[in-house]
């Protein structure tokens, strides 16, 4: 009886011998141009399994193909979403340019309608808004180098915006008509009654010092009167009367005026330089 390890070794050597013999026979058979018994047996035994497994794997592959398709669709969806975003951005840009175009045309027409055909009307862009809550003002990109001076009138085609408070070489700070420190000579366009339009630090103005007998009613348009040292141009739209009050102590009337210009959304303005 061989010891256990020897038996293992004998098996190993026997297996190696079989392999070597099989390899020699295989080589000779192939050299003779024949396929050989071993290959035929393996083919006969394995091929039915291969056929079954191949069919099954193709069916399973088809099922996995759906997942691959989903992945492809997902990737395509992501790509298309990106393209939609880019196109949406492009549309936004074009719409913005269109709006700007309309605005500039409107400003051009307005400028032509100004006294002296707007020779002294300088176009400016609002580049900043009020830095604090206590001061209703904007900054424009024109300054003393462009001829802007303090107290110049600032307006848009829709109406009055305010006056230049501080001018630096290349920028200027415009005090808006809504600011508490602002006062404009105003006139009720329909009846000609005049008063002073003051800022209230809100989105409404107040027209004061109207005589008690002044004919004013909601809906009346208020324009600049040309009186006073600041706003000397007549007929610039200020706003529309919303409400009329009577102050019995002073026997005067006052009116709440909605500004013609939404000063919170200013983009381009004109500065009337002198």
């Amino acid at each position: 009886m061989y010891p256990r390890v020897d038996r293992q070794l004998v098996l190993f050597l026997a297996a190696l011998l079989v392999v070597v013999l099989a390899a020699v026979v295989h080589r000779r058979t192939r050299a003779a141009g024949q396929e050989g018994l071993g290959a035929s047996v393996v083919a006969v035994v394995v091929s039915p399994l291969q056929q079954g497994l191949t069919g099954a794997s193709r069916r399973i592959g088809g099922a996995f193909g759906i997942f691959r398709e989903i992945r492809t669709l997902y990737a395509e969806n992501r790509r298309l979403r990106g393209e939609v975003d880019r196109l949406r951005q492009r549309v936004n840009t074009l719409e913005e340019q269109g709006r700007e175009n309309v605005r500039l045309r409107e400003m051009l027409r307005f400028r032509e309608g100004l006294p002296r055909h707007g020779e002294n009307a300088l176009a400016a862009t609002v580049i900043g808004v009020k830095p604090t809550n206590w001061y209703n003002a904007v900054t424009i990109d024109r300054g003393t180098a462009d001829g802007v001076r303090e107290r110049n009138m600032v307006l848009t085609p829709r109406g009055l915006v305010g006056q230049v408070r501080v001018a630096t070489p290349h920028t200027a700070t415009v005090l808006l008509i809504t600011d508490l420190h602002s006062g404009v000579g105003g006139r009720i366009q329909r009846t000609g009654w005049t008063g002073v339009v003051k800022g209230t630090a809100s989105d409404r103005l107040e027209m004061v010092y109207l005589p008690e007998e002044a004919a004013v009613r909601p809906g009346d348009r208020v324009v600049t009167s040309g009186q006073g040292s600041v706003f000397q141009v007549k007929g610039i739209m200020i706003g529309t009367v919303e409400q009329v009050r009577l102050d019995r102590n002073t026997s005067t009337r006052s009116a709440v005026v909605r500004p013609a210009v939404d000063v919170r959304r200013l983009e381009e303005v004109f500065v009337l330089t002198e």
């Binding site: 004998v10 098996l11 190993f12 026997a14 297996a15 079989v18 071993g38 290959a39 393996v42 394995v46």
Partner: peptide, 19 residues
């Protein structure tokens, strides 16, 4: 065990070789 493994390995190699 190693002996049986060797026989099985030989069979495996021949199978793969013939295939």
């Amino acid at each position: 065990g190693p002996g049986a493994g060797a026989v099985c390995g030989a069979a495996a190699g021949l199978l793969e070789g013939y295939a």
